[in-house]
Amino acid sequence: MISVERLVKRFGAFKALDDVSLTVPEGKLMALLGPSGSGKTTLLRCLAGLDHADSGDIRLDGVDAAALRAKDRRVGFVFQHYALFRHMTVADNVGFGLKVRKGKDRPPAHEIAERVGRLLELVQLAGLAGRYPSQLSGGQRQRVALARALAVEPRLLLLDEPFGALDAQVRKDLRRWLRRLHDDMGLTSVFVTHDQEEALELADEVVVMNKGRIEQIGSPAEIYDHPASPFVFQFLGNANRLDCLVRQGVGAFGGWSFAARGVPDGPGVAFVRPHDVEVGPADGAAMAATLRHAIVLGPTVRLELSLPDQTPFEAELGREAFSRLDVSPGHAVGLTPRRVAAFPTQG
């Protein structure tokens, strides 16, 4: 088990990590999700021993990591730009971690070769053992980097934006493949991403970070359905933000009122996702709105609306539902949010 306890890391006046604590459960795939500058990569580098925290503890299987240098931590690290050794073949790259072992820890050459062969098969690059990194595609390099990290049988696999430098299709394939690999090999992994879709699709557990702090930890469903803060809600997808008033657990915006459990009395913010709103005829709906534009995006239609107080509002619905609605720009429509999340106004 890997645990992080009250980690703080400053770069000059900038607090990259501000009192971060978490536990990486054995055998799970965990995502560190956040915008750039949120501290997620710094946390990953601290786990690997590539950065040293100013205070706080990291424990690897109960051992204080401060006592272990990066080279002795048995942590696999896949760098964002792979950091493959460009003057070594694919096989030499993968075997490096075994070759640099000393004395009796170092497997004999034939065993290294065997292990490298197996790993290359695992990452489906068996035919490319003699190639140099510059002769590979981005996706292939990524898999070499992964094989290299796995060769040392790490107790923890860390991946820094593992799909960041790949194009969309490759990214999708690799994602599924990585998830399978993780399960087949029984790894414990942490990866960093700024892409909420990637985190939600891939991870068992998502850690949402912002400004060096952890905003929320939970399963993808928990995070998506019960965001703990406005930041998490907005970061996980498009949202309409409405300034509202809360009184005794009930929020009000215009003539529309909704449950706002746990939110103290006073000004608050309510979020409604574009696909969580019903669009229908003007009468009988919770809110009135005027259609400004309708943009067809493949199977769905994005409606740009404006509320009576001129607040812009976005809604999304299927092509068929849109044609049944039969409205054009300038028409009045009615909006009924299916789900809403309310928070107190901060500061």
């Binding site: 021993g49 925290a53 100013d54 401060a66």
Partner: peptide, 13 residues
């Protein structure tokens, strides 16, 4: 000062 804090002065490479 904890071990981790002292390590702050240590360089990785």
């Amino acid at each position: 000062m904890t071990a981790a804090a002292r390590a702050g002065f240590r360089r990785v490479i």
